[in-house]
Structures are given as structure tokens and as C-alpha cells.
Design a protein around this nucleic acid. Sequence first.
DNA 1: AAAAACTTGACTATTTTAGTCGGGTATATA
DNA 2: TATATACCCGACTAAAATAGTCAAGTTTTT
Lengths: 140, 140
Amino acid sequence: MKLNTKSRYAVMALADMAVFSNDKAVSLRDISLRQGISLLYLEQIFLRLKKNNIVKSVRGINGGYILVKSPKELKISDILLALDQKVKTIGCKKDSKKSCNGKSTKCITHNFWDELDIHINSFFENKKLSDLLKSREARI
Amino acid sequence: MKLNTKSRYAVMALADMAVFSNDKAVSLRDISLRQGISLLYLEQIFLRLKKNNIVKSVRGINGGYILVKSPKELKISDILLALDQKVKTIGCKKDSKKSCNGKSTKCITHNFWDELDIHINSFFENKKLSDLLKSREARI
DNA sequence: AAAAACTTGACTATTTTAGTCGGGTATATA
DNA sequence: TATATACCCGACTAAAATAGTCAAGTTTTT
């Protein structure tokens, strides 16, 4: 049960931007160096973040990426969604004999999986990017 | 971000046992038929559950498996642990330049991953097998 | 003009997952 | 005591997902 690296790196990279941008575009090269993430991989990740309107890009020299929303408004769930990291942890067997349609026929564990989803989802829904930085500042 | 089928099936199978055993051993064949899970796969799963003292086995005709603890006492986290399903969702990069050792040097997102782990872990820690059945009975 | 930086699709090696297979051993019951 | 039922266990494998890399651009600033 784990988050994939794309999602993890996305959160790390965006947190990095929130810390190190001074209202300027942040280049992937800088993020790559600071966070130790492959530049080529970051490009792939930011393509998705851009398509999903999490960041916008500035081309050319001194270019880079800028957060569309402020860290206070950017939910972690938005980031995960952009990377297709569905927080739907697991379903129940659909193709068993006594198949579970989720309504009239529910398998024994159906409600449990639903609760698990809600539990995890709400965590990501309620966390903002700025929340990650707060605990960082508290440490410094 | 999802649970693997081994863990999912383990929870389903144990819930099945809790419902259908009448203080008798439940055979994997019966679980397999009721839950639509491959018998061979169930054997593999129950091997681990037995090694980790979640179930005990009765060999021979009319044999099967019996829950070691009552459903009221069996935590879901115990089940997942038996299947090596570490609930440690993700760590931070250990091998980056400014590596995170978790103590004096922490990466920006370190505390966030820790919180996530705690959040999910506590869900599994606080759920008992009997809790799954309760919501089932409420539906019937 | 040249360099920095984003753009994009395609490709690939490795790992994980989700099982299957084969050949056991133990035991209740006829 | 024969035999069917059911657990025991390591090894194997096909398919999917993961974690990237590569190539060949385009755009913009200096």
C-alpha cells in the first residue's frame, strides 16, 4: 500500500517550488538538483501538472514553472488527481458468483473498503501544500 | 495507492470464516466457492496467516482453518501485517544529495509522509474483523 | 545567433503482482 | 486399512505496472 514515485515526486517538487520560488518561475533543473529527482522524469510529471492546471509554464531563458494557486489553496488531492493517482484504494470482486453490485447485493467487505477510501481521501482533501511547509518551518 | 489482492482476499476470507463457521473448521474449498477466489491462491494466503498465528489448521477430512482470536479481538492491521503488507506508505528519498535521515536532516515532505502513515495505520489498528460484519448485519 | 528551458510521444528495463503447478503429508471415516 | 479430503510448501511464470530514458523538437531571452 503505497504512493507511486510520480505522485511522491510531484508533491516534493511542488513543495520545493513553494519554498524556493520568490514569485519567480522555478526551473525544473533547479528542482532536479535540489530534490535529487531526474530532470527527464520531472518533465514528464510537470507535463501532467500543467495539463491539469496545477502549474503554468514560462518558456525560454529564466523560464520555469509557477504555481497556479497559492500553496494555501492547493489541496494535495488536486495534485494526486493530476497524476491519475486514484485514491480509490480497492474495490470488491465484481465477477464472483455472488457478485457485488454495491447496491442490493453487497459483499461482506464492501462497506469496509468504502470507509477506507473515505478515510484516506479525506486526509488528502484536507491537506494543503502550505500545511507541509508549516511543519517544516516549525522544525527549523 | 491500493491494497494488493493478497491482503484484500485475506480480509475477505477471514470475514467469510467469521460469518460461516459455526465453531467448526472452515475449508478453503468452501471459502473459495463462496468468495470466488482461487483455491490455490487461498492456500498461499492461509499459509502466511497460519505462520503469523492468525488462524490454526485442522488437517484431514472435515478439516480446515479456525480463527485463533475471536473476530472482536482480531485487528485488521494484524491481518495486513501477516501478509507483509507494510502500511508504511512511502519514505522520502534517502540517497539524494541533501539526504533525509529523518532526524537532524529532514526533507520538506518528511513529516507529511509520516502523518499519512499514521493516519492510515490508525484506521487498520482500530478496526476489528467484527466491525466489518456489523455493517453487514445492518444491511440485511 | 545561441543558450536555456519547456514539449511531447515513444520506448524500455526492472520489479511487482497475481497467480499456477507439482508433489507432498495428515487424518477422519467407511 | 484404503481412500478421499484437506492442509503444506517451494518453485515457477505470464502479465501488468513502475520508473524511468531518449530523441527530436519549440519558444523565448539575452
